[in-house]
Nucleic acid binder design. Structure first.
Lengths: 181, 181, 181, 181
DNA sequence: AATGAATGAGGCTTCATTCAT
DNA sequence: CATGAATGAAGCCTCATTCAT
């Protein structure tokens, strides 16, 4: 693994386990097995390191979630599949999900990064819009629909990181029932 | 207003607006219009101040939410009413809700405080149990049901703090549809 | 006992037991069972309180030690008696002795107070001078003689605050042998 | 000189000249010509810095004092020689001696450090024991004998740091007369 | 590129002192 | 006189960042 990845891995682990305040650059360097100065060859500041981690995590998350969208499948299938993928990703990448939660409200994340992550959700929005047109999804503002389900799923996964298939089914069922017309 | 309340108000505002790390004791004192030392007459440390704010916010939240529970009403009514109260509280006390979100995962909150806040949700759990027995609520682990809805509602409110009655209706409808059998 | 004495007693106890640094005015007030402000009615500052305690302790010490000097007795008897009285005082007033030791080198003690305490030893110096003239005391600078014995006795008492009569005899014997011609 | 030594030298000077309370870390850093943070690369806290200085001073003192003990010499010679070495050390290292005096009673010195310094005096104790067996030293508890002489010598040196050879002779003579049978 | 000793601004906290009651 | 809440200067210590090697 590259030295850069070592640093990113050490950082995400420590931020999630101990919080931002308790994670010093020295501490990260130690876990990444490199000198403090080395970190500054890859990231110009702690803030930039956090933003980089945030951007990366978000992009991987949405890519994974939206990768399986297929316009040939039914809308219900696409939506359910998206949630399923989201859950799958969260269970396999707990640190990324927790890191996103940790910083999604933080003023440390630059406006630019926030916007970059937003755009990646456009395909999902389209699906919902079509669902509303077809009358199978509630006629509520799409952003509210997505926010509702995303909030529900994220909270559920964080509170129970060892979900089994039954739990996942319950979860997707609730998510679908919430938004279906 | 008492000096103690001044400090608590200044603190919750700054923690929510700027984050914990960016909110120094000096900064709080300035906003509370008192000397730094004065704060230590009321709270022995920054940590204790945060715990106090957390405990207070949580207790007010759950008291408000659960205040209207009435065993004579139908279960559906009780549940819907609870969510409605929760939303109402959140809209009227946005700082309390955001503060809770900010610290609910933080290691700064003492185990003792966490436990104190948990117990206040027992009445809600009972309602759900009864709902399941009556076959009107999905037969899913109660904690998962509550986590799901709470996560959904909290995310929704934070993303749209200026909800109108229609939005609230949509929200409670989704919440109910998600858990109803 | 007067409130002023309460304060002095509380202060000397705490300074000796916990050190100056660890003894706050609040702490003294608590032990003296009075308000913080009250202390400032009697002593204008912490420094003045310490100087007052120092002066008082030193004066009581030298008064006691020198009270029994009697020009009609032999020089040897006078000297031995003085040491005996010093030991006696130290054993009965351990806090005063320790307090003196604690602050005798401290820059907190004002020059004026230091001088005031010096003058009280003049009678002892005279005795020694006479002893040297009579050829029964070593012909060494008097201040050195006194410093030697005082240092020896103080160290001995502090290291063994529960001396019995035998110990005291040993001590005075050593003191005498050290300075006798 | 190493940066670490710079710090130790600056610290011992300031502690002795101004007292512990009046010697801030900032103050030491200034005299050591380094940043405040630098000091914490070498000593984890002010307390540890003081303990280190104390341990170092004590060890150098006892090493020097006891270095010349020689079982082939007479007991009287060994004892006199020890005092002479002690005086010599004190005159050449006035700050070390004053520093030891300043902290020997302080609760800031860790038990572990106190014990480490005690053990270095065992050889001296042995010599005294032999002296008592041979009937040339007073039959008094050895610790009392040592405490007496050490207290006397320390007080003498501190009160007259510019002793000449005659003064030293007087001093050792008094010390010997005090303890000899 | 890699390192980590050096730096000092800034954070939390203590405490001598004041002053309104 | 007695009180103790209020104050803020000053202390100890942390840590993001720099820079000489």
């Amino acid at each position: 693994m590259s030295k850069r990845d070592n640093i990113l891995n050490a950082a995400i682990y420590l931020f999630v386990e101990h919080g931002e305040q308790a994670t010093s650059m020295k501490c990260i360097a130690k876990r990444a097995e490199c000198g403090i100065g080395t970190m500054y060859n890859y990231f110009p500041s702690k803030e930039k390191l956090i933003n980089e981690l945030y951007l990366q995590s978000k992009i991987k998350y949405s890519n994974y979630m939206l990768s399986a969208l297929n316009t040939e499948d039914s809308i219900k299938y696409n939506i359910l599949h998206t949630w399923r993928k989201a859950i799958e990703f969260a269970l396999e990448n707990p640190y990324k999900i927790k890191f996103i939660e940790l910083f999604c409200q933080s003023p440390i994340i630059e406006e630019e990064v926030k916007n970059a992550t937003l755009s990646s959700f456009l395909p999902l929005i389209e699906i919902f819009e079509k669902g509303k047109t077809d009358g199978i999804v509630k006629n509520i503002d799409t952003l509210q629909l997505i926010t509702f389900v995303k909030g529900a799923i994220t909270a559920s996964i964080i509170s129970k990181p060892d979900m089994n298939p039954d739990d996942i089914n319950s979860l997707t069922q609730m998510a679908w029932d919430a938004i279906k017309e």
